[in-house]
Amino acid sequence: MEVVDPQQLGMFTEGELMSVGMDTFIHRIDSTEVIYQPRRKRAKLIGKYLMGDLLGEGSYGKVKEVLDSETLCRRAVKILKKKKLRRIPNGEANVKKEIQLLRRLRHKNVIQLVDVLYNEEKQKMYMVMEYCVCGMQEMLDSVPEKRFPVCQAHGYFCQLIDGLEYLHSQGIVHKDIKPGNLLLTTGGTLKISDLGVAEALHPFAADDTCRTSQGSPAFQPPEIANGLDTFSGFKVDIWSAGVTLYNITTGLYPFEGDNIYKLFENIGKGSYAIPGDCGPPLSDLLKGMLEYEPAKRFSIRQIRQHSWFRKKHPPAEAPVPIPPSPDTKDRWRSMTVVPYLEDLHGADEDEDLFDIEDDIIYTQDFTVPGQVPEEEASHNGQRRGLPKAVCMNGTEAAQLSTKSRAEGRAPNPARKACSASSKIRRLSACKQQ
């Protein structure tokens, strides 16, 4: 084909351009004929944790799935940006308080904090938690009735009371019990989460009196709706648990309003109706937990002794299953770290194939690490110290990083047969305790 000078094309009309061969290198194709290559998922490591896909996002930050490269346990990490926390009232204080509380709590029905990582340079905090497959609110939203069968609701409620009793025994008032803060594992274990607005009572406090509340409006008791200066913290949790039980068994809320002012007005009056299909035992329990006067409201001991709580409820309806993943529609909620794991395991070791967030990740503290002497050669063979940054567990980050890069360049065919977990650990520049 004859090559045409581009400067001469402006002298031709459209018809003349076609005659000189423009149609031979300008093609129009339908979008259905285009085959897009999927974007390669680059592996990203935060300390010893391999990052997966997004699980959810809230006002405080994002939650992603991660894999512990040492234990191969599935975890969830809450990623918090200090810049964003400053824009939220009491944001930083709530996060630090939640970390302090979770560090000393150990119960099967309370979410466990596994690790805390802090990135000084990017001003990011990573709260590594045990993995929960789904939230209770997500399960309720997945069915038209917006409720659980009585047998399933009873099982979840009993676990909620177990976890709540443990928190109260530790002198902690949750203040925000609701389905949105109750998570579930694949085995059906309920976990109380989000202790950001919780309050730890003084060890020598005479009672459970509280003065502040930041919980969700629909789950607040009349004493808070009416603006009382002080109130019983434990009875606030009992009320919120009662509203939660009402919601998961009926699909409704005892109090509603077009806006928060109308909602608080209705809560302050204390008038509500219980659907007739709840039955006398459940209705009596709800009335005891939603008692207007805090002094007359049920205690956890009274809830445990109630006939509806103690009764064994046979399954009359099919239980609400864990819904498919909202993004991938995966009904099994498979591990989202698998594509990243395959990338590390299947590809040659190259620095361009993975990302390490930083050479140094500070753990379990908000301060910069200490310094240790770096050896410097002298005339008599002895070495003197220069400062060298280290990880919180004493690992020399720069030395590990250099060693990792040197190993990656060394030709050794046997290394390709290593397991995925050992490869992740070798790529991680800074081991965590």
Score class of each variant (00 low, 15 high):
6 P>Y: 15
7 Q>I: 15
10 G>W: 10
19 S>F: 05
20 V>R: 14
20 V>P: 11
24 T>R: 04
24 T>H: 15
27 H>Y: 09
27 H>P: 10
28 R>A: 13
30 D>L: 06
31 S>M: 04
31 S>Y: 10
33 E>D: 07
34 V>Y: 06
34 V>I: 07
35 I>C: 11
35 I>A: 11
36 Y>W: 00
38 P>T: 05
38 P>Q: 14
39 R>S: 08
40 R>T: 15
40 R>A: 15
41 K>E: 11
44 K>D: 04
44 K>V: 05
45 L>I: 05
45 L>C: 06
46 I>G: 04
46 I>V: 03
47 G>R: 10
49 Y>W: 06
49 Y>M: 08
49 Y>C: 06
51 M>G: 07
52 G>F: 15
53 D>A: 06
53 D>M: 02
56 G>V: 01
57 E>Y: 05
57 E>D: 05
58 G>L: 00
59 S>R: 13
62 K>V: 15
63 V>I: 12
64 K>G: 02
67 L>R: 03
69 S>G: 15
70 E>A: 11
70 E>D: 06
75 R>C: 13
75 R>N: 00
77 V>P: 02
78 K>A: 00
79 I>R: 05
79 I>Y: 00
79 I>H: 00
80 L>A: 08
80 L>V: 02
81 K>W: 03
82 K>I: 10
83 K>Q: 02
83 K>I: 10
83 K>W: 13
85 L>W: 08
86 R>T: 15
87 R>G: 07
89 P>N: 15
89 P>M: 13
89 P>R: 04
90 N>S: 08
90 N>V: 08
91 G>C: 01
91 G>M: 03
91 G>L: 13
92 E>A: 10
94 N>S: 09
94 N>W: 01
95 V>W: 02
96 K>P: 02
97 K>Q: 03
98 E>G: 02
102 L>G: 06
103 R>L: 05
108 K>R: 10
108 K>N: 09
108 K>H: 09
109 N>Q: 05
109 N>P: 00
110 V>A: 01
110 V>D: 02
112 Q>V: 06
115 D>L: 08
115 D>Y: 01
116 V>R: 05
116 V>I: 02
120 E>Q: 08
121 E>R: 10
122 K>L: 11
122 K>T: 15
122 K>M: 09
123 Q>C: 10
123 Q>G: 05
125 M>W: 09
126 Y>C: 02
126 Y>A: 08
127 M>G: 02
131 Y>I: 08
133 V>H: 12
136 M>K: 01
136 M>E: 00
137 Q>W: 09
138 E>N: 01
138 E>V: 02
138 E>I: 12
141 D>V: 08
141 D>T: 00
142 S>I: 05
142 S>D: 13
143 V>Q: 04
144 P>D: 12
146 K>D: 02
147 R>V: 02
147 R>G: 06
148 F>E: 01
148 F>Y: 05
150 V>L: 02
150 V>W: 03
151 C>I: 03
153 A>P: 00
158 C>S: 03
158 C>W: 02
158 C>H: 13
159 Q>K: 03
159 Q>L: 03
159 Q>V: 01
163 G>Y: 00
165 E>W: 02
166 Y>F: 06
167 L>S: 01
167 L>V: 07
168 H>Y: 02
169 S>W: 09
171 G>C: 02
171 G>S: 11
172 I>N: 01
174 H>C: 05
174 H>F: 01
175 K>G: 04
176 D>H: 00
176 D>G: 00
177 I>W: 00
177 I>V: 06
177 I>F: 02
178 K>C: 05
179 P>T: 03
179 P>L: 02
180 G>C: 07
181 N>S: 00
181 N>F: 00
183 L>M: 00
184 L>C: 04
188 G>Y: 15
189 T>I: 10
193 S>I: 08
195 L>T: 15
197 V>M: 00
200 A>H: 12
200 A>P: 10
200 A>I: 10
201 L>R: 05
202 H>A: 08
202 H>T: 05
205 A>W: 15
205 A>P: 01
208 D>A: 08
208 D>E: 11
208 D>I: 10
210 C>A: 10
212 T>H: 14
212 T>C: 10
212 T>Y: 11
214 Q>T: 15
214 Q>A: 08
214 Q>V: 05
215 G>S: 07
216 S>L: 01
216 S>Y: 00
216 S>D: 01
219 F>Q: 14
219 F>R: 01
221 P>D: 00
222 P>G: 02
222 P>M: 03
223 E>K: 01
224 I>R: 06
224 I>W: 10
225 A>Y: 05
228 L>A: 15
229 D>K: 03
229 D>L: 06
229 D>T: 15
231 F>R: 09
233 G>L: 14
233 G>Q: 15
236 V>I: 09
238 I>T: 10
239 W>M: 01
239 W>H: 01
239 W>C: 01
240 S>W: 00
242 G>P: 00
244 T>H: 00
248 I>T: 08
248 I>C: 06
250 T>P: 00
250 T>G: 04
253 Y>G: 04
253 Y>W: 03
254 P>A: 00
254 P>G: 01
254 P>H: 11
255 F>E: 04
257 G>S: 11
258 D>G: 12
258 D>A: 10
259 N>W: 05
259 N>A: 00
259 N>R: 07
259 N>S: 10
261 Y>G: 05
262 K>R: 08
263 L>R: 11
263 L>M: 05
265 E>A: 10
266 N>D: 07
270 G>N: 11
270 G>C: 11
272 Y>I: 07
273 A>C: 03
274 I>S: 05
274 I>H: 02
275 P>R: 07
278 C>E: 15
278 C>K: 14
279 G>C: 03
280 P>E: 15
281 P>T: 12
281 P>Y: 11
281 P>E: 10
281 P>C: 03
281 P>A: 04
282 L>S: 02
282 L>V: 04
283 S>R: 09
285 L>I: 05
285 L>D: 00
285 L>Q: 00
287 K>D: 09
287 K>R: 02
288 G>I: 00
289 M>G: 00
291 E>V: 09
292 Y>G: 12
292 Y>W: 03
293 E>P: 04
295 A>N: 09
297 R>I: 01
298 F>W: 04
299 S>N: 14
299 S>T: 14
300 I>W: 09
303 I>S: 00
304 R>L: 06
304 R>K: 10
309 F>S: 02
310 R>T: 05
310 R>C: 06
314 P>G: 06
315 P>Q: 10
315 P>E: 14
315 P>T: 08
316 A>P: 03
317 E>N: 14
319 P>S: 11
324 P>T: 07
325 S>H: 13
325 S>N: 12
326 P>G: 13
326 P>Y: 01
328 T>I: 09
329 K>E: 10
329 K>D: 14
331 R>D: 09
332 W>C: 02
332 W>E: 15
333 R>A: 09
336 T>S: 06
337 V>S: 03
339 P>N: 02
340 Y>K: 14
340 Y>D: 02
341 L>F: 03
342 E>Q: 09
346 G>D: 02
347 A>H: 00
347 A>G: 07
347 A>Y: 10
348 D>W: 14
349 E>P: 11
350 D>E: 09
351 E>C: 06
351 E>I: 09
352 D>R: 15
353 L>W: 07
354 F>H: 10
354 F>S: 10
354 F>Y: 10
355 D>E: 06
356 I>T: 14
357 E>Y: 11
360 I>Y: 13
360 I>L: 07
361 I>H: 08
361 I>F: 05
362 Y>W: 10
362 Y>T: 14
363 T>S: 10
365 D>C: 13
366 F>E: 14
366 F>I: 06
367 T>G: 15
367 T>P: 11
368 V>R: 04
369 P>L: 07
370 G>I: 14
371 Q>S: 10
373 P>R: 04
373 P>H: 12
374 E>G: 07
374 E>P: 11
374 E>K: 12
374 E>A: 05
374 E>T: 13
375 E>L: 06
375 E>T: 05
375 E>I: 14
378 S>N: 14
378 S>R: 08
378 S>W: 04
378 S>P: 11
380 N>V: 07
382 Q>I: 10
383 R>K: 14
385 G>K: 14
385 G>I: 12
386 L>Q: 11
388 K>E: 11
388 K>R: 13
388 K>W: 13
389 A>H: 13
389 A>I: 14
390 V>Q: 15
391 C>N: 02
391 C>T: 05
392 M>D: 08
396 E>G: 13
397 A>M: 15
399 Q>E: 12
403 K>M: 00
404 S>Y: 05
404 S>G: 14
405 R>V: 15
405 R>P: 09
406 A>F: 11
407 E>Q: 04
409 R>P: 14
410 A>G: 09
410 A>K: 14
412 N>D: 13
412 N>H: 07
414 A>K: 13
416 K>Y: 08
416 K>W: 03
416 K>P: 15
417 A>M: 12
419 S>G: 14
421 S>C: 02
422 S>A: 12
423 K>H: 05
424 I>F: 06
425 R>A: 14
426 R>V: 15
426 R>I: 08
427 L>N: 15
427 L>W: 13
431 K>L: 14
432 Q>Y: 15
432 Q>W: 14
